[in-house]
Structure formats: C-alpha cells, structure tokens
Write a protein that binds this DNA or RNA. Structure first.
Lengths: 362, 362
DNA sequence: CATTTTTGCTAAAAGGTTTTAATAGTGGTC
DNA sequence: GACCACTATTAAAACCTTTTAGCAAAAATG
C-alpha cells in the first residue's frame, strides 16, 4: 500500500468511525465465549475462530456455515476476549504514548490527534508523562514494554539513547517526535525547526528597525533546540549580524528566568527576540508585564494566549495534526511490516505574522 | 484503611516512585517464563507463583526456598506476563479515562495528575476524548469495557445516563468528575461550583460600580453549568438584583459567539460578567479585542492567559490536583472493595481576584 | 505405636483465544 | 478398485499465568 492510498484509508476510517451502524451496547455481566457459540451451533470452536478471523475462504469453510455463524455471532453480540486473543497472538493493539508532559498544550493537542488516528485503526493508547526525569522515563518504557504494547510513540528526553536503542535491538516498533536521537537510527517525525527559525529570524531581520536580534533558548542538547538555533544563526550569518544567545536552565524558577531574560534584553540592547519555545515566550511576556519592556518578538509553537495578547504575538507554528497523522502512519507501518525501512519525516512549519513583530508600537 | 492513612500511603508511593532502587532494564527479546525458573531451580511452577504473589507464608513455603526463589527471580529479572496474569485473574490493572477533550487545558491537567496517582498505585491509563458525540462516547465506553479495564473515570457528556447505569448494574467501578448524572447513583468528584459562582458573583456585587451583572453560559443541562448558574442567581437574589443570562450554543462558531456576547453586554448595558467556563471567558476577551469593550469580569477555571492578560483576569479556579487525587482514591477504593458505598466528593473552589474585577480602568 | 495434624510442596485445571496438524468423506483418474 | 487430490471440519496444543485440590513426609498426640 503506497503512502497516499494509506492516507485515504485512514481518512476514510476516521470519517466513518462515528457513523457506522447504530451502536449496540453489549455491556453485560456474563461475557459470552466462543465455546458457547460452538455448542449452540453444534460446530467446533476452531471453525468459528477461522470464520471470525476472516479465514473462512482460505480454510474452505462453506458459505452456508460461514453465514450461519456470522449471523449468530452478531445476534448474540459476541466479542472475543481481547486478553486471551492478545495472549495467544502476542498483539495487544495498544500503543504507548510517552510525552514530556501531557499537561503541556502542545503535547495535549498532539495526543488528541494521535488518539483519533489510532482509534480509527483499532489501536488504543496508554499514555504517560515522563517529565525530565530519565530514571522515571526508563521505568515507564520498561512498564509499557512489560505490558507488551505493540509500539511506542516517544518524545525522547535526554539520556534515553540506550533504552531506545535497546527497544530497537529487540525489534520493538518505535517512532520519535518533536526531537530525535541522532546516534540511534529510528523512525521520527519532527517539524522543520531549522527553516522555521530561519524564516522567523529573517522576518525579524527584514524590519530595518531591528538591528540587534537575540535568541532565547534552553540548556538542552535536544535536536529541536539545536535546529532552531542553527536556523537563527544561518539567518544572522546571511545578514552578517552578530548573534546574541541566552540559554535558560530547563527547570529554572520562573522569576529567575524572568530576571535573566530581562537582563539579556537590557544588557544587549536587543530590538527583537526569537523565543525557542512557547513556554519561554510566555516567560518573555511576563518580563513585559513586570518591567514594561518588550522588544519585537516571535515565539516557537502557537498558544491561545498569543492571538489575544496585546500586541498579538507572531509565531512559528507546528502542524500538529499532520505530525500526529504521520506518527501513527509510520508506527503502524512498522508494526505491520517489521522489515520496513526507517522513516524520517520532516513537517514544514508555518510562520504566522502578527503584531509583535510588525507593529511600530512598544 | 481509613482515608487519611490511604492518603499518606499514596503520597509516600508517589514520592518514592522515582527513587526506588537503581532501575534495571529487562527489555530483551526472549521473555523469560515462570516455567523456566521452575526448571532451573528444580521447583514447581506453583511454588514460585505462590512466592511471587506473597503467599509464601500462607502456603507454608520454607523461608529457605522462598529466599532462593526470590533471589533467582531478581537475578534473572523475571516479570510475569501481564496478559496471562490478567486473563487468569480478570484484573488488567488498567483504568479507562474518558474526558470530553484531552486537548482542553483543564482535562490535560487533570489527566497529568490522575496519571501520577494511578501509576503510583500500579495502574495504567487508557485515555480518550469523547467530544460531545454521544454515539462515539458510548462506543468508547464499550471498547474499554471490552478491554476489561478495571474501572472508569468519566466526564459524562449528555446522553450517557443509560450506559453509565449499565456499567453500574454490572458492578463495573465508575467515578464521574467535573459533572455528574443526577438520575444515576454513582461515585463522583466535582468542584463546589455553586459556591464558586456564588462567591464570584458576590465579589462582583460588592463593587458598587457594578449595577448590572450578567452571566454567560452554555446551552447545557450538565450539573456543573446548572450549579454555577444557581450560585450566580443566589448571589443576585441576596442583593435583590436582576439577572441577565446568556447561553451560547455548545459548538457555536467562534465569531458568532463573539458577536452574541458583544450584543448581550451592549443590549443590557452590563457592568460586569461572570463567565461559566474559561473557554467562554476567552471568547469574551476576544470581544474585548474586537470591539474594545470589556466590563468587569470573572472566569471559571484558570488559564495561563488570564494571569498575563492586561488587565489580568479574576477567576474561580478548581483544585485540579485534589480532584485528581480524590478520583483515583475513590475509584481504587471501589475496585478493591466492590461493596463500598457510593462516594460524592465536593472540592472547594478558590476565588482568585485579579485586576479584571477590581481595577477602575476600562 | 497407631492415628491425627501439620508442614512443604506439586499436578492439573482453569482462564479464552488462535493455530497446527490431522481426519473423514467425496470425487476424479488411470 | 487402488490411489490421489481436494473439501469441510475438528481435536488438541499453545500462549502463560493463578488457583484448587491433594499428596507424602514429618511431627504431634493419646
């Protein structure tokens, strides 16, 4: 199945998921077994299993019997016990979603869409937030592995190289997102952070008033941070301007961060700033609120706040739905065909220009 | 175990979760079986199972053997196959979390904390968003039921009375939150919406400039909406003021909603407005941005935006962590003791007064 | 010393599927 | 009419645990 076909199938499934037949609830205390059906119909369990798994033709079950079974199964609302099924087949039809923090709007949004695509394909999701705690992260991956999830969707935090490599070595399907691990050859889906930052910086540079343009980022070796910085640098190089870079500690106290950003802007007399994450940009806005000073700015990742803020904040926004769709697509491909080659998918970003980078105010 | 003890245990587990022993990864292709251990140690499978399930004493397994087994198990990193375990015991150690929309900040935050408390107790979470689609919601509940989750945490959308009742009838542990279903006697954990709204309204009333105070809500019969309105009404009654109530369609186009709110404020010459949800309040702020008019206001549910907005927005905020903790506590109680009586927990709200309801500006 | 009780452990069943290997019957071929 | 191929179905093994019921040896009892 080529990619575009696959895409269509997914879309189709998704669209029709909620319009299937009228839903019949079969929540009842005594779950009915395949052996009950076999007895009632005077047929063997094997036959029924074959029919239900679509192997009727292959196993030469007569059409008459096939229909009789199918009808009866529908009538009594039989559903195979998934645990028994999973135990036997080794497939749980569950994916593990490990994000940095599910309460972060970016991840929550991704999670929402991943959920939609997964469910449309018959997969459920176990989720968890790993924070920036490597030990916790490894433990959670181990837990999900022990639960025999069919695949992993992970935002790798630092220090996870070995465990991800271990998963791969054991042929566990994995797809990373938001950032990837250069040393480990895995599937990943990321935004085009480099170009996003490049275009944002260029946009700031094109306003002649912006002589001195700074970049606020985090102390982090993660690829998305590196790429954003590289994009910023390239734009500056093109215009032969000096770079001003400030990195904040990942778990810095908010007021400390605020003070640091304020100093950074003041000391360097910055006219404009590119913030590497929306969280940092929000911290930047608090500088504004506290010190009443705000240079031109662009933030990475959109946020409800940015549209409403006065002035509204320009952003490099990620195509969250596309990312989610690709994630599920790549992962399911790997699950269905373990031989499949590794996929690296880079999704373009969109530069949304608002007032914070154009208005002459401030 | 009384509630407070239980609370302590949870807290303890949570705190120590990440500091346990050094983590040893046992991700490996060939999973080791209990029978392998039995063979290696020349002991029966039964004995090992008893020991691992803490029944050594009860089953009179000698201490010597117990230790030998425990040590060996640790050495080879054996972990029981959870599927086989679940199949046999009927317990999956998985909870189903069904929220209206995981990408909504309120639910994402709750999800984060529910996750923490669940994991600390050895439970994992399957999540999904139901939207406002009753059919989808029922289907998802059915799917989770089929997966034999040990319990449900649900924000019931309208039309779910029957399926929740069905779960209850079949002794499936359920706890509702955010709102409940009056006709069905279930566990629930909700905020004290009535008093929250009452206090917020009273706060607005106490400012003598606010003669006309409106309430913007949704067309919805859900309890939390009803309670918030009742709280608003009671405060107005106390001050013998007229009520101005505007309800917006749940899935209304944003610009339509904006226009409706604007009209509502204009037509009634409102001095102040209480918004029944943070989403509505944000829509209200867009009225401000579009028409440049903003009465005094208080929003329900906090949001990053509100602290930063100029003026900052006063809110009735919910104690999300407490709610999450109670949810898990109540649900696990029910799971562990199916006879346990139904719990109704009402968590107080906090009125956070900011500039939008006090500043003389606008 | 015969009987009962306790100790220490285990064989086998149960949980509910899928899948392998086999069987009994039918029709065709030379 | 012996042999083969095919049809339509199934018994039993496998997946990996937990739990029931029971057994043999040792200790306690009268």
């Amino acid at each position: 199945m080529v990619a575009s076909e696959y895409h269509d199938v997914l879309k189709f499934l998704l669209k029709n998921l909620y319009f299937r037949q009228k839903i019949t609830l079969t929540i009842m205390s005594k779950r009915i077994l395949i052996s009950d059906i076999a007895k009632s119909l005077g047929v063997s369990v094997t036959t029924i299993s074959f029919i239900l798994n679509g192997k009727a033709k292959e196993k030469r079950i007569s059409d008459a019997l096939t229909n009789r079974v199918l009808e009866y199964v529908k009538k009594v609302g039989y559903k195979p016990n998934q645990l028994a099924q999973s135990l036997r087949t080794g497939q749980t039809k569950i994916l593990g979603l490990l994000v940095e923090d599910i309460s972060n709007l970016f991840f929550a949004n991704i999670a929402k869409h991943i959920e939609e695509f997964s469910y449309a394909s018959g997969y459920h999701l176990l989720y968890c937030s790993m924070g920036n705690d490597t030990v916790k992260a490894k433990e959670l991956i181990q837990l999900f592995y022990d639960r025999q999830v069919d695949g992993f969707i992970i935002t790798p935090t630092e220090g996870l190289e070995d465990v991800v490599a271990l998963l791969l070595k054991n042929k566990v399907p994995v797809v990373l997102f938001d950032r990837y691990i250069p040393q480990v050859e895995t599937n990943y889906v990321v935004s085009d952070n480099f170009n996003g930052a490049f275009r944002a910086t260029k946009h700031l540079l094109e306003n002649a008033d912006n002589r001195r343009i700074g970049f606020v980022s985090l102390y982090s070796d993660q690829t998305q941070m590196r790429d954003r910085m590289d994009g910023y640098m390239k734009a500056l190089d093109q215009y032969q301007r000096q770079a001003y870079i400030k990195k904040i500690q990942i778990d810095e106290q908010e007021d400390v961060a605020i003070a640091q950003i304020f100093e950074f802007i003041e000391d360097n007399k910055l006219d404009a700033v590119l913030f590497a994450t929306n969280y940092l940009a929000i911290t930047g806005l608090k500088v504004h609120k506290k010190y009443g000073k705000l240079p031109a700015m662009v933030a990475f990742d959109d946020h409800t706040l940015f549209k409403l803020h006065e002035p509204s904040i320009s952003v490099v926004s990620q195509r969250i739905e596309t990312i989610a769709e690709e994630l599920v697509k790549v992962l399911l491909r790997q699950i269905r065909n373990p031989q499949a080659d590794v996929k690296h998918i880079v999704v373009p970003c969109d530069l949304k220009i608002r007032d914070s980078s154009t208005a002459k105010s401030n």
